[in-house]
Amino acid sequence: MTMRRLLQSREAILLAVLVAMVLAIAARFPQFAAPASLANVFNDTAILIILALGQMVVILTRCIDLSVAANLALTGMIVALASLAAPAIPVPLLILMALAIGGALGAVNGILVWKAHIPPIVVTLGTLTIYRGVIFLISGGEWINAHEMSDAFKAFPRTVILGLPVLSWIAIATVALFAVLVTRMPLGRAFYAVGGNPHAAVYTGIDVGRTRFAAFVISGALAGLCGYLWVARYAVAYVDIAAGFELDVIAACVIGGISIAGGIGSAGGAVLGALFIGVIKNALPVINVSPFWQLAISGLAIILAVAFNARAERRKGRVILKRAEQAA
């Protein structure tokens, strides 16, 4: 029984760890826990949160998307080039463009997994290198720098509304949307079914391939959105932006308790996993630890989280003896 409660409150444990961490830092460095500072941490983590939510639905269907960071970089570059060529394009249109391009790049992954039956890790490993290469082709290896971008282009994610930048609001909206998607929408529940038991899913009338395709399109669209947000926020676009970021995204999911075997996880978990990484990244300079510690700490956190998840998911042995049944 306690086991079950523990399982259900995986997110609660992570939240407790996160709060404890913030409090411990605040005990020595109170300025870290100031609302403005925390809001800044959140804003800094917003892109990771959005990508982690997209990755979550892919992992829920027992797949993996290694191409998100390359998708982000490619879409970011295309959007930046488009804005450069036609500065009159309004930002909302650019965002729609980013969603569409990212979604299309995700659809390429999805089609290959669905129709060609290639393992997702191979597909996205392939598209990861292809997308990076394409950035070079379309940009000629050139950087697009801040002074080349229009002000509107750069300003949008930083515009402050009700005390928070638009970037943060987009992350919050995505979280809300995904919480509804995975708990209340038939497609969201299909993600769990497909990852939990693909064979059984077929019998309930769920098309496994199509559902996975949908997950890749969603993940891709969010990566595209983040492409614009990243390029606009950091005001630079080049081939290698967000290189290796896909592993941070997967790490956020793993820390958030999303099972790599599929079918287990929640939007709250993904958000907390991302925030965990974000808090560590932002706290290190505050507590005067070299930022070079960040990588090792997230590595350790991933290992601990995986170990914890594995323990929680372990199947119970068969209980046959009456005596043991009562004791359990």
Binding site: L295, I302, I303
Partner: peptide, 15 residues
């Protein structure tokens, strides 16, 4: 699971 465990050690070792 090795895929995530070694993503963890990847960060740890390089970290």
């Amino acid at each position: 699971p090795s895929i995530v465990a070694t993503i963890g050690t990847m960060s740890l070792f390089r970290g």
